[in-house]
Amino acid sequence: MITLEFARTMARYNRWQNRSLVTAADSLSDEERWKNRGAFFGSIAQTLNHILWDDRIWLARLRRDRDNEARIGVHHPYTDDPNDWSVFVADRAALDDEIVVWANALTDAELTSDVSWMRGDEDVVTNFGFNLAHMINHQTHHRGQVHAMLTAAGVHPEATDLQMLKIIEGESPS
């Protein structure tokens, strides 16, 4: 379904785009970050929190780490406490770096293997590559929501074009 090169590229893209959104959101006040803007998760901060939570749980699932998956559970990690922003920023950056390292260590055998994970009380078995594609797609979907909310708030994150990643990394887009 997907290749190692694609997985690794998307891990780097994820890190770049999260840095862009967090940097843009950092220029807003805590009140502006938590303001309900009518998105599915309400605010910029709540949507960013959801992306972080989902990345953590899918990474645990893809690592076959049932204990960590259970610990993460169904709760998002941050509240509307403004003091949490600096913690969120550090956690997001650390997780993005961890995802890049993890993606660089993936093997072709893993991409085609099955993964067992929990959906509520149900044990679900699905393809690793399909789950990784879901994780990537989910990140992109919700980052688009954050990008729109930031733009509406008068803040302009970096471009989102995948080709720009290669330029930023010093390569020619192909």
Score class of each variant (00 low, 15 high):
residue 150 L to F: 07
residue 91 D to K: 14
residue 140 T to F: 04
residue 7 A to G: 02
residue 166 K to I: 07
residue 59 L to K: 09
residue 32 E to T: 08
residue 43 S to F: 01
residue 113 S to T: 08
residue 2 I to L: 14
residue 6 F to S: 10
residue 137 N to Q: 05
residue 135 M to W: 10
residue 78 Y to C: 03
residue 93 A to R: 07
residue 128 F to Y: 11
residue 155 V to L: 12
residue 172 S to Q: 10
residue 151 T to H: 12
residue 130 F to H: 15
residue 63 R to S: 13
residue 64 R to M: 05
residue 136 I to R: 03
residue 154 G to L: 05
residue 10 M to I: 10
residue 163 Q to H: 15
residue 128 F to I: 09
residue 40 F to E: 02
residue 116 S to G: 07
residue 8 R to Q: 08
residue 46 Q to Y: 07
residue 24 A to D: 03
residue 135 M to D: 03
residue 45 A to K: 00
residue 148 A to T: 13
residue 19 R to F: 02
residue 110 E to Y: 06
residue 147 H to N: 06
residue 136 I to S: 12
residue 11 A to F: 01
residue 133 A to G: 11
residue 4 L to D: 02
residue 84 D to Q: 13
residue 60 A to N: 10
residue 138 H to Q: 02
residue 29 S to V: 01
residue 118 M to T: 06
residue 79 T to R: 07
residue 61 R to Q: 06
residue 18 N to E: 04
residue 134 H to R: 14
residue 23 T to E: 09
residue 113 S to K: 11
residue 90 A to Y: 06
residue 80 D to A: 04
residue 165 L to I: 03
residue 139 Q to P: 15
residue 7 A to M: 08
residue 27 S to D: 04
residue 149 M to L: 14
residue 159 A to P: 10
residue 140 T to C: 04
residue 142 H to V: 01
residue 24 A to R: 01
residue 135 M to L: 14
residue 11 A to I: 08
residue 102 W to T: 03
residue 37 R to N: 00
residue 100 V to R: 00
residue 88 F to L: 09
residue 173 P to G: 03
residue 139 Q to F: 06
residue 68 N to R: 15
residue 33 R to V: 07
residue 108 D to Y: 13
residue 65 D to K: 02
residue 8 R to I: 03
residue 52 L to M: 12
residue 16 W to Q: 01
residue 165 L to A: 03
residue 17 Q to H: 15
residue 115 V to W: 06
residue 39 A to K: 05
residue 68 N to G: 12
residue 61 R to Y: 05
residue 134 H to A: 02
residue 103 A to N: 04
residue 147 H to M: 03
residue 173 P to A: 14
residue 126 T to C: 08
residue 171 E to S: 13
residue 59 L to F: 08
residue 44 I to V: 10
residue 32 E to L: 15
residue 129 G to Y: 05
residue 155 V to C: 08
residue 138 H to E: 00
residue 13 Y to S: 03
residue 158 E to T: 09
residue 134 H to E: 02
residue 109 A to M: 11
residue 100 V to D: 00
residue 92 R to Y: 02
residue 90 A to E: 00
residue 143 R to T: 06
residue 134 H to S: 08
residue 129 G to Q: 12
residue 70 A to L: 03
residue 10 M to Y: 11
residue 124 V to I: 13
residue 6 F to R: 06
residue 118 M to Y: 14
residue 87 V to K: 12
residue 121 D to W: 09
residue 106 L to I: 11
residue 133 A to R: 15
residue 117 W to N: 10
residue 92 R to L: 00
residue 31 E to M: 13
residue 29 S to D: 05
residue 1 M to E: 12
residue 64 R to W: 00
residue 2 I to N: 07
residue 53 W to V: 12
residue 12 R to W: 03
residue 14 N to E: 00
residue 107 T to S: 12
residue 145 Q to C: 04
residue 57 I to K: 02
residue 89 V to E: 09
residue 95 L to H: 12
residue 102 W to I: 05
residue 50 H to Q: 02
residue 156 H to Y: 11
residue 141 H to K: 04
residue 2 I to V: 09
residue 174 S to V: 09
residue 41 F to V: 07
residue 71 R to L: 14
residue 59 L to G: 06
residue 87 V to R: 13
residue 132 L to R: 07
residue 93 A to T: 11
residue 10 M to F: 14
residue 5 E to L: 14
residue 104 N to G: 14
residue 66 R to E: 02
